[in-house]
Design a protein around this nucleic acid. Structure first.
Lengths: 340, 340
DNA sequence: CTTGGCACTCGGTCGTCGGGAGTGCCAGGC
DNA sequence: GCCTGGCACTCCCGACGACCGAGTGCCAAG
């Protein structure tokens, strides 16, 4: 009973702090929430919550502020994901429809998410490794140069210029193309290495240098995790976080410019379609210890193909953010699935 | 003679202000530069420069700061582009080599430029409209869906999913592909509309809906200025500008997130390979009136195909920035040209 | 366990006050 | 005519101190 009220107090503190961005005191707490007890009682509860490490005071005798642990408890036990309003859902639908290709879907989704949440949004491209090859094309560019284009069934197109440093005739390109096509179309990318292994041997010694170069590039394209590309939007919203935590903008921007960091952020909860929330120091990425990251996987068909999410200040509106992230993930999944 | 000294004073003020970020007074000016006259004389010159609108004082009785016009004069008449050091040139070379495709070249270049200048760098993709079609591919995805891939001789690949809402057989795809190939390969993109105009007529009535949809998408792809894509890097450096002009970070970030704005920034000096410098209010883009934009065209062969440049605070190191921008543009041009 | 009372802490704001940097002007010198 | 040293003036900035108010912790009583 008492324990319950304490948690209510914690919830109230989180909500007020998120709304006002100011440490919240016992008096304003009883005024804004009908807790049915006096400020003095609240103070006792607060002292207890502080002992548990869920809230803290910036300075002696100032209001309380939730700690990372406090947010953790709030997210795990005290809040529910807030579903979007009908208007918001319609906005999502109309915003995402009309995307012309995969890049466009990614771009629109990430912009939308940043606008909905007023935070920085990220989206990872659908995984290539799990998908299959839909088509492969070789185009001669110069005597020794070939453009290799690989089209996956996710709609993703990868292109590479191969410099074979050995002459490549159009005839050779044609034969190699045909041979490769019969070996890779419909094959999962991860399996391509196996199916093309003996292709080189099937060509005359004279052609082998060129063929080897092209096949090697193909394998690179397939193996290198090119699905690990991340798109970003809403960095302007960082300035708004900054109101309070100014100066911390720089490390955040730096972290966000590093693809590797973004991948770690999204990757930590890989291949799960359950909302993941990492709060403050729970993030292992340096420079993002004052931010929280909310991510979720999105699917194509019934398989989770990548992650999307947002980065924001720890004092964010978790229920709302989680609702938006989940909703956008579902819409993206729907679009990818339909676009099969 | 006197006029000359005044300009020297202006140059000294710009250099000191850029170095220190603080208003510069008459005394420190004579100390740091061997002007051969007394502070009082400098004060007279400063008063004259102020009358001409080239410098200003933030408050009565503070040092002077260059105005946008002052920077203008500095750039036009008082400074020379600073060539890069040998080490820097080598760094550029090794950094840009090893790019695997066009996207990679763009990405590496823009990152490099942002690191060299410690500012925000932009690069525009090579213009598609001026280039020719190298290859075109149609890939059937679903009964009514086709993936259209267009490869330009710049190395640029455009992809579109076409939903014909009419069945498309593999046979039809094959015939259409062959027909289109003979009409578009080697043709300049701007001329494609002309060469494919009568293709639809050559198919049976039954196939026309599908063919029309595909050709329409092809025309869209060609006409829509898809070359107008811009890549960005170094936004973290914005935080460093912010030391002084804090709070102004937000509008800048917002402006930079808008593709249209970036295009205007780069486009204003279109198709010229002469360094363009727009200072402060000379920029028509709202929110960037406290920044300067240095851009230059880069070429493929002997034709200027797009622009690249940087955005930084008006108090930037113009000679150094201009040197870096020009150098990177030359290297990018070289790579694109070799990669013919 | 709750509550009202009370003393205490401490951050933020405001006004005051020199110090210092810098200016503009003036009169004298080259 | 231009340069220069001197001088009074302006004004920003940081330090200092006082005050106010919000908020706390503790205690004794209900």
């Amino acid at each position: 009973m008492v324990e319950d009220r304490r948690l209510s107090v914690l919830r109230a503190i989180v909500e007020d702090y998120v709304a006002t961005h100011e440490p919240v005191g016992s008096r304003s707490l009883v005024e804004r929430h009908s807790l049915g007890v006096s400020p003095a009682t609240i103070r006792n509860d607060m002292a207890a919550l502080e002992d548990e490490g869920l809230i803290a005071q910036p300075h002696t005798s100032a209001g309380r502020v939730p700690t990372d642990q406090g947010y953790r408890v709030f997210v795990d036990r005290l809040s529910q994901v807030k579903p979007l309003s009908g208007a918001e859902k319609r906005a999502i639908g109309s915003f995402l429809d009309g995307a012309v290709d995969l890049d466009d879907v990614m771009l629109r989704s990430v912009k939308l998410l940043s606008q909905l949440t007023k935070q920085v949004a990220l989206i990872q491209y659908p995984s290539l490794t799990r998908s299959t090859v839909r088509h492969l094309e070789l185009v001669g560019l110069a005597p020794t140069r070939v453009l290799l284009v690989l089209i996956a069934d996710t709609g993703r197109v990868e292109q590479r210029i191969v410099d074979a440093s050995a002459p490549i005739t159009d005839d050779l390109i044609g034969r190699l193309r045909a041979r490769l096509l019969e070996r890779v179309v419909g094959v999962r990318l991860v399996d391509v290495a196996g199916t093309v292994a003996d292709v080189v041997e099937q060509f005359e010694a004279l052609d082998r240098p060129a063929v080897t170069a092209i096949v090697a590039t193909l394998l690179e394209t397939v193996v290198e995790r090119h699905e690990e590309r991340v798109m970003l939007a809403g960095t302007a919203n960082l300035a708004a976080f900054g109101e309070d935590f100014n100066g911390a903008v720089r490390p955040v921007l730096e972290a966000l410019e590093e693809q590797m960091v973004l991948l770690r952020l999204l990757g930590e909860s890989r291949s799960s379609d359950v909302l993941s929330v990492r709060i403050g120091h729970e993030n292992e990425v340096e420079g993002l210890s004052a931010t929280s990251v909310v991510t979720v996987g999105y699917s194509r068909g019934d398989e989770v193909v990548a992650q999307l999410g947002v980065v924001g200040p720890t004092r964010m509106d978790y229920p709302g953010t989680m609702g938006s992230v989940r909703a956008v993930a579902r819409y993206v999944g729907r679009i990818l699935t339909e676009q099969q």
